[in-house]
């Protein structure tokens, strides 16, 4: 029983990361109708940024979170303004595919050149501190990350629901023409949206650093899972991505617990395929 609860908690934690990644991806998709294929690499950049801040400036990985988020926001905005917005004008999806895939390659290979292929990690004074919560034991960093994930997710929902910019982001994703009719600066929303999506990925990276190894392709599995989350949760749907992320995290840890950890990837991808097939047949039937 306690093993089960432990797996639940870990599943929710990983699910929280997948949700955050998927929601960022979906905000970007909703607004610009593009899939950001370098989303995982942005998580990796967030990891290395946290690593640099900790190693060279002695900044605690959790205090680094806002710094990483802001830096990644600026990086994302810059990429949107200089690279993506001009390519959107061409209306060529292959352009954008090559652009974001290329950016991902650039980032992971850049990290390889700068940091080498070694696995890095951040070990703080409290990395090995364990907290007993009833039947569940959790390393303190996992617990803190869990808390921060909840706060960020709630804040994101509130931001989109209640703030002017959040409403404008939803407006552009629901109806770009309508958005222009009511005077929304669509280009500005593009910049803010991509910045926000990248900031969320970077935040996820920063929150992972104390219990996940840092290496140039560390983002790949998260990037891929973000895509699964987006497809399962529904393209452009923020609540869908949230739920699908949590589901994916739980599925992973439960299959590791009940079947075998070595099969958990297999099961995740099988489930993904089954969901796709089932949905496709359902859509076909309806027609």
């Amino acid at each position: 029983m306690s093993m089960f609860l432990q797996a639940c908690v870990n599943g929710l934690l990983m699910g929280g990361f997948y949700s955050l990644m998927g929601m960022g991806q979906n905000i970007i998709f909703g607004v610009m109708k593009i899939v950001n294929f370098c989303h995982g690499e942005m998580l990796m950049v967030g990891m290395y940024l946290t690593f640099i801040l900790y190693t060279f400036f002695g900044i605690d990985p959790y205090l680094a979170v806002p710094i990483v988020a802001v830096t990644m926001f600026c990086l994302g905005s810059l990429i949107q303004h200089t690279l993506i917005t001009p390519s959107l004008g061409t209306k060529s999806f292959t352009n954008l595919l090559f652009l974001t895939v290329g950016l991902g390659l650039l980032l992971s290979n850049g990290a390889l050149v700068i940091f080498g292929s070694e696995y890095r990690s951040i070990r703080t004074a409290y990395s090995q501190t364990y907290i007993q919560l009833g039947p569940v034991t959790m390393a303190l960093p996992r617990l803190i990350s869990f808390g921060v994930l909840i706060v960020v997710t709630v804040a994101l929902f509130a931001f989109l629901k209640y703030t002017t910019i959040g409403k404008q982001i939803r407006a552009v994703s629901q109806n770009p023409v309508g958005a222009e009719v009511v005077g929304i600066d669509v280009k500005k929303i593009y910049i803010l949206t991509y910045g926000l999506g990248i900031a969320l990925a970077g935040t996820a990276g920063a929150l992972l650093t104390q219990f996940y190894t840092i290496f140039p392709t560390a983002g790949a599995s998260f990037g891929f899972r973000a895509l699964i989350v987006v497809v399962v949760g529904g393209l452009g749907s923020i609540p869908g991505a949230f739920l699908a992320g949590i589901f994916l995290g739980l599925l992973e840890t439960m299959s590791a617990l009940f079947i075998s950890p070595s099969y958990s990837d297999l099961i995740v991808f099988m489930t993904f395929i089954v969901i796709l097939v089932v949905r496709q047949t359902m859509i076909a039937r309806r027609k």
Partner: peptide, 8 residues
């Protein structure tokens, strides 16, 4: 075509 924000 009205161009409303249909989910709002």
């Amino acid at each position: 075509g009205r161009q409303l924000f249909t989910e709002m």
